[in-house]
Amino acid sequence: MPVGMREAIDSGQFIITGEVAPPKGCHLEHMVEEAEFYRGRVAGINVTDIQSSVMRASSLVGCLKLKEAGLPPVLQMVCRDRNRLALQSELLSACALGITDVLCLTGDYTTLGDHPQAKPVFDLDSVSLLKAARRLMEGRDMAYYKNARTGEIVDGEALDGAPPSFCLGCVVNPGAVPMEPQIYKLLKKIEAGAEFCQTQAVYDPALFEEFMTRLGDVPIPILAGIVVLKSPMMAKYMNANVAGVKVPDWMIAELEDKETRVAKSIEMHAKLVQDLKPMCQGVHMMPLGWDKHVPAILDLAGL
């Protein structure tokens, strides 16, 4: 498996990515230990950015820790907590640290997390963040103001030195109802410069096939999202709370027996990966703590 998103995309191979989350605390050792299970198996490991609006250590620091351990980080960036000044600044900072794979998202709303009284920012959204990153790659920023002396409009200030180079990613929810708005938005993201796309959790290959058919040919790899189910309770929670996610009853039933749960889960998700593989260009593994079982899933899926 090529390391880094650019190399993986250029290789034309089936792409595998993983995901870890920084803790609510200042000790990231456990997060790095979880990421170790991906070593040699994935092109990139997403580090989530205050996901679900639950306060925790930053994605950038998590990425740095992975990089120090020799693992390939993908910086997730959401627009909820920072305005365009801070987002561009962080993009430059990431590049300065050698972190250049970036997943651009709008982000979950504040009230869904543990600081519901926080002020939501959303100065940019996923598309304008992608555009901002693209512009930085061209050597200029989003600056836009009237020069006080000349009266001329300044549209972009030049960056010092060679511009950053990013491989930009985006997300889509293939199960959202209705589906069309998701497709419109994804096309905007591609137009704005996204080079790969990771999807929300998929459990229904038929629905995913419909999505891919309606999307048609796009010039970027689509990586189907695999959220590893750990228990019937988790599956039911996702059905009730995650938009566009429908875990079928038979999968929930497979997880009922505690004794066989892990083995069944590995088997089910390996099958899911195999079923999805012909329809897409990669998979994005989101094991939510079950990182240690990802190698077994990939092995069984023949990846």
Partner: peptide
């Protein structure tokens, strides 16, 4: 709720908003 200008997020369900499911996306 996010004041987006480029289309919806991935959080709507059956045309309803994730932030307040009583409201239309």
């Amino acid at each position: 709720p996010k004041g987006q200008l480029h289309g919806p997020c991935g959080g709507y369900d059956e045309g309803k908003c994730e932030v307040n499911p009583e409201q239309d996306c």
